[in-house]
């Protein structure tokens, strides 16, 4: 990584990028603090420092802090960055600005797992909803990887992924049609998305899955930077396209699958945030866009998480996400998206 900070690197040379990162990072820290101190039980700065100083404290405020607030912050930051990076990678690989984790059916796979667990009565033992979502997302990832091996063209793979997503959604509908009202209510609640489900014990698991996904995507930056010019162009630059594409797809699936498993099917971050990152950083270099999207995603998720728990997370994100997508589409009509 020595070259990253070396003379001539975009990080130092381009002030705009440095300023954007500084502002985003500051905003993320502020939102993290706000998430930690706001809620039904208000925390002062002293309480916050006190809870941080004694992680093993047994009183109510300590428990609220460590069992509710901290997992909530971690869930928002990890899910926001994971979905944003997943969306960015998929948009680049498929050269389609409206691509996102939902398009390939990965989130649908997680939904199918949860539907089977909650509605069809297969409880998955102590795995519960979380395990069911992970299994569903991972199963879809495997099928997508198999499809990716059959089709060399990204556009065909995109259509195959879309069709597969529809197929899974149809299966979910069939299961929903034959389920009881009580179970259906739980399933619908899960479908609204929330950062409040992550437990302190699962934080490491979530962080581990996101780290693996990010590493797979980051290891394919050469491919991502060349992919917008087409697969043949990338091959001409010495990129092993089939291997790199599989790494990106697997990484994106892990990121989206983990986020959906832990926070529910959180919509829009995956589609909207990469466009936000383009607008802020004004570059197509994924060395900047990947961390940039991750920061924007984390910030958007934290902001959405600050709204009262009674307002469904997906509703808040859609209210923020839709205007962004519309703005990009309107701009696109002027300058070719």
């Amino acid at each position: 990584m020595s070259k990253v900070t070396g003379q001539g690197s975009p990080f130092l040379r381009n002030h705009r990028i440095s300023i954007c990162f500084a502002v985003l990072f500051t905003a993320i820290v502020v939102c993290c603090l706000l998430t930690l101190v706001t809620g039904k039980v208000s925390f002062g700065l002293a309480d916050l420092l006190n809870a941080l100083a004694e992680p093993g404290g047994e009183d109510v405020s300590h428990r609220i802090f460590w069992n509710l607030r901290v997992p909530r912050v971690v869930a928002a930051v990890l899910a926001g960055s994971a979905l944003a990076v997943s969306g960015l990678s998929l948009q680049t690989v498929f050269r389609n600005p409206l691509c996102g984790p939902f398009v390939l059916g990965i989130s649908s796979g997680a939904s199918l797992g949860v539907a089977i667990a909650l509605l069809a009565g297969m409880g998955f033992g102590h795995f519960g909803v979380l395990g069911a979502a992970s299994v569903g997302a991972f199963a879809v990832t495997l099928v997508i990887m198999a499809i990716a091996s059959c089709f060399t063209r990204s556009s065909v793979l995109l259509v195959a992924g879309l069709l597969f997503g529809y197929f899974i959604d149809a299966l979910v509908s069939v299961i929903m049609a034959g389920s009881e009202a009580e179970n259906l209510q739980v399933y619908v609640a899960w479908g609204m998305g929330s950062f409040g489900r992550l437990t302190i014990d699962s934080v490491y698991l979530f962080a581990g899955a996101v780290a693996v996904g990010l590493a797979l995507v980051a290891g394919s930056i050469r491919y991502l930077n060349a992919a917008r010019m087409g697969d043949d162009f990338a091959r001409g630059l010495g990129v092993n396209v089939s291997v790199a594409r599989k790494c990106v797809l697997l990484g994106s699936s892990i990121l989206a699958g983990a986020a959906t498993a832990f926070c529910g099917p959180v919509a829009f971050i995956g589609i909207a945030v990469p466009h936000l990152a383009y607008m802020l950083f004004k570059t197509t270099n994924h060395r900047v866009l990947i961390p940039g999207s991750a920061c924007c995603g984390a910030l958007l998720a934290l902001v959405a998480g600050l709204f009262p728990v009674s307002v469904p997370l997906n509703a808040v994100l859609s209210v923020v996400g839709v205007p962004i997508i519309l703005y990009v589409m309107l701009r696109g009509s002027k300058e070719r998206v």
Binding site: G8, S9, P10, I221, R222, L237, V239
Partner: peptide, 18 residues
């Protein structure tokens, strides 16, 4: 992008590349 075949895994550019 022409310098991509000479870059590392993270696609960095050296002063010479620039």
């Amino acid at each position: 992008l022409g310098r991509s075949p000479y870059s590392g895994m993270l696609d960095s550019r050296s002063v010479e590349d620039d």
